[in-house]
């Protein structure tokens, strides 16, 4: 079994495909040349910085706390990304931070608590990163859908509130739909894993020369972790968003529309 060593020459060679994209953009008058160049340059620079950072964290004598700090930084950046994508809803950053943090805590506790993988920088940082990357979409969707469901059913909710229901109980029937919508894409993706495209972790391991069966087992663990994390984040963000749309004295407060 050989490992794949790409090297800078390999990266330079792959630029041929960027040139193809540039030529196509010019030939078809897409006007994307600057954007393609900027995206490629940015991807290269970002990955080099990440690579340099990971090299330091992965040093055999590097303390484990650096890896945990790396994970914490990823959660912070993740929450900021969610907050900027949702927009118009107060408290989304804190809400997303709590949800992503809890999902990470639960998933990592399972992985390392049950001894699925050894706790070391080389497993912690990539696993946490992968979970986070997959949870961002569900988190954004859960916050947006919750807001949309509450806005769409404002009359129904206020009828219940006006009859003396607690605000969280009045909102609850509409929360399930928002959560379902956020978790369903991940469930569907889990159903077809391996049938249409080889998933990322497995591809990476195969390229790195790992035995296919080991690669598949690792991928299955990752898929289950992602499914669990997505469910945890969607439920927490849905509930957190609903809480921000109601008050302690049981009123509905919606952000201005338009």
């Amino acid at each position: 079994m050989t490992t794949v060593d790409v090297g800078f020459l390999g990266v330079a060679s792959s630029l041929v495909l960027v040139v193809v994209a540039l030529v196509l953009s010019m030939a078809e008058g897409l006007g994307l040349e600057r954007s393609i160049l900027w995206a490629s340059l940015r991807a290269f620079a970002q990955m080099m910085v990440i690579g340099a950072g990971l090299s330091l964290v992965f040093e055999p004598e590097a303390p484990m706390v650096w890896s945990w700090l790396w994970v914490a930084a990823m959660v912070l950046v993740g929450a900021a990304t969610v907050s900027s994508r949702v927009g118009g809803l107060r408290g989304t950053f804190t809400n997303a931070l709590l949800a992503l943090g809890c999902a990470q805590a639960v998933s990592l506790a399972v992985v390392y608590g049950l001894g699925v993988m050894p706790l070391e920088p080389r497993t912690l940082v990539p696993v946490a990163g992968m979970l986070l990357g997959n949870c961002i979409g569900a988190t954004v969707l859960a916050a947006r859908r919750t807001l949309a469901e509450v806005q769409a059913h404002r009359d129904d909710i206020e009828v219940r509130i006006a009859l003396g229901w607690a605000a969280r109980d009045a909102v609850r029937p509409h929360l399930a739909e928002a959560m379902r919508t956020s978790v369903t894409p991940q469930v569907e993706q889990t159903k077809i894993i391996g049938l249409i495209a080889l998933p990322g972790t497995m591809t990476g391991l195969l390229l790195a020369g790992v035995d296919p069966l080991d690669a598949v087992l690792t991928q299955i663990v990752v898929v289950f972790l992602i499914l669990g994390s997505v469910a945890v984040t969607a439920v927490l963000v849905g509930r957190g968003t609903a809480r921000r749309l109601t008050t302690a004295d049981h009123r509905l407060v919606l952000p201005p529309t338009g």
């Binding site: 009359d155 129904d156 206020e158 009828v159 006006a162 009859l163 229901w165 607690a166 004295d249 049981h250």
Partner: peptide, 29 residues
């Protein structure tokens, strides 16, 4: 506020039917 709202009822501008039968709607109260 929950006690107040049971003493002071409200009928809204838009006629709102919640899911289920007419009896189900009444039992929401």
């Amino acid at each position: 506020p929950l006690e107040l709202r049971r003493r002071v009822a409200m009928v809204f501008q838009r006629p709102t039917a919640l899911p289920g039968s007419v009896a189900d709607n009444l039992r929401i109260a």
